[in-house]
């Protein structure tokens, strides 16, 4: 089952928890906003991705099939 990470840019406020919890796939740009790697989330990282989604203070990170 394919899973991709999406950012709701209208909600994202550059809190940066996603980059802390999923550094393999998320980096922060010059202004603190997440740069998310393209493509599917690899199986071993799905748990961490879910964690990051739950941690986002703005509920801006989404994991969708």
């Amino acid at each position: 089952m394919s899973r991709r990470l999406h950012v709701d840019w209208t909600r994202c406020d550059a809190h940066g928890l996603c980059a802390e919890l999923l550094p393999e796939l998320v980096e922060l740009d010059d202004w603190g906003y997440p740069v998310v790697a393209d493509g599917e989330v690899p199986e071993p990282l799905v748990g961490h991705a879910r964690h990051a989604v739950r941690a986002c203070p703005q509920l801006a990170l989404l994991l969708r099939g």
């Binding site: 809190h15 940066g16 928890l17 802390e20 919890l21 603190g32 941690a55 203070p57």
Partner: peptide
């Protein structure tokens, strides 16, 4: 403090 930038602790720890 969770809104702060430049944390002493990682933000997920503060959370």
């Amino acid at each position: 403090a969770s809104g702060a930038r430049g944390p002493v602790l990682p933000r997920f720890v503060t959370q």
